[in-house]
């Protein structure tokens, strides 16, 4: 049952990603990317990551994609015009390189995890039962990963300042 739903949402994610990269209109591309992000959120739920799925919808599908659509509409790029897809040589190069990459990733995906580092099945679910869905992510975040968390806040501050400086016409 879970596997069936996983496959359905996986096919939705892959199909809408394909439509996203082939649509001529940037607005259509952005909307298909939103579909991909929602399907990925569903996959996260099926993989016991409900909090990450909520973040995916709030941060990615909500904030980041609105930013993209805002810039597309600010620059008035939605109007019909010449296509931005490369010619046959570019398409062929892209297909060959992407095919080689997919082959490599599939070989990597065949590798099996050594059983000595694997947790027994159901460990994550038990942890979520015990600490709560948010708590099971928050506990390592504010404990083991506290320094990276603080560095991420500095990064976001730098990004805010950088975006204002870059986008302002005159300081």
């Amino acid at each position: 049952m879970t596997l069936t739903f996983f496959r359905i949402f996986g096919v939705i994610a892959m199909g809408s990603a394909l439509l996203c990269i082939t649509r001529k209109n940037p607005v259509a591309s952005a909307l298909w990317l939103v579909v991909t992000l929602f399907a990925l959120a569903a996959l996260f739920v099926l993989l016991d990551a409900q909090f990450i799925a909520a973040l995916q919808i709030l941060v990615y599908a909500g904030a980041i994609m609105v930013l993209f659509l805002f810039v597309i509409m600010l620059l008035n790029l939605g109007r019909p015009g010449p296509t931005d897809i490369r010619g046959p040589v570019g398409l062929l190069t892209a297909a060959v390189l992407a095919g080689a990459l997919l082959l490599q990733l599939r070989v990597l995906g065949q590798a099996t995890l050594p059983s000595s580092i694997q947790l027994p099945p159901g460990t994550i679910s038990a942890l979520q039962q015990q600490q709560g869905i948010v708590g099971s992510v928050a506990n390592p975040l504010f404990d083991t990963y506290l320094v990276p968390f603080e560095i991420a806040s500095v990064l976001l501050l730098a990004a805010i300042v950088g975006a204002v400086v870059l986008a302002k016409r005159k300081l």
Binding site: G10, C20, P26, R86, A94, L97, L102, L105
Partner: peptide, 22 residues
């Protein structure tokens, strides 16, 4: 598998599109 396909589609998109936002 889904992850590998999505990553490949992203790489292909970077290679064959010219629009910076896409």
């Amino acid at each position: 598998f889904i992850s590998a396909v999505l990553f490949t589609l992203g790489v292909a998109g970077v290679l064959f599109r010219r629009n910076a936002i896409v």
